[in-house]
């Protein structure tokens, strides 16, 4: 059984959040989402703020919002190092909306040199909001 499962770990700065096995993990990479199946070629990728999906069989068993970090894939499994990771169902929609709002204001107020950073923050906040809205939509 172990051969057709992929080991995955989600690590945030304060702890190892998840360390489990699944059939497939879909990771929001910097250049687009990619799925990791057992025996994937070694890969290093940056993360884009977005939703990481864990598949068991044909069903999504976990959905996590991740932002900022990298994914390291080896044939044995994958490790996602994310500055931020939260199960989508735990996101508070109101808080997400507020965060997006604040980020937008900060972005508009940002001076020339602060722009790139503020834009990144805004992107993450918007992805966070999208993640929050989607889970409600599906529930």
């Amino acid at each position: 059984m172990a051969d057709d499962k992929v080991r995955y770990e989600v690590v945030v700065p304060s702890e190892i959040l998840l360390s489990e096995e699944a059939d497939m993990v879909v990771i929001p990479g910097g250049e687009g989402d990619f799925g990791v199946l057992p025996g994937h070629a070694p890969l290093l990728s940056t993360l884009r703020p977005g939703v990481l999906e864990v598949y068991d069989g044909n069903a999504v068993t976990r959905r996590l919002f991740v932002a900022g970090g990298l994914a390291e894939v080896t044939p044995d499994g994958c490790t996602v190092l994310a500055e931020e990771a939260i199960p989508v169902e735990e996101i508070d929609r109101e808080e997400a909306r507020q965060r997006a709002e604040e980020a937008r204001q900060a972005y508009e107020a940002a001076q020339e040199e602060g722009r790139p950073t503020a834009e990144k923050v805004l992107r993450a906040a918007e992805a966070y909001l999208v993640a929050a809205e989607n889970v409600r939509g599906k529930a």
């Binding site: 250049e31 070694p42 890969l43 290093l44």
Partner: peptide
């Protein structure tokens, strides 16, 4: 490490 596919 050099054998990794890098993206980007």
């Amino acid at each position: 490490k050099a054998m990794y596919i890098m993206e980007p």
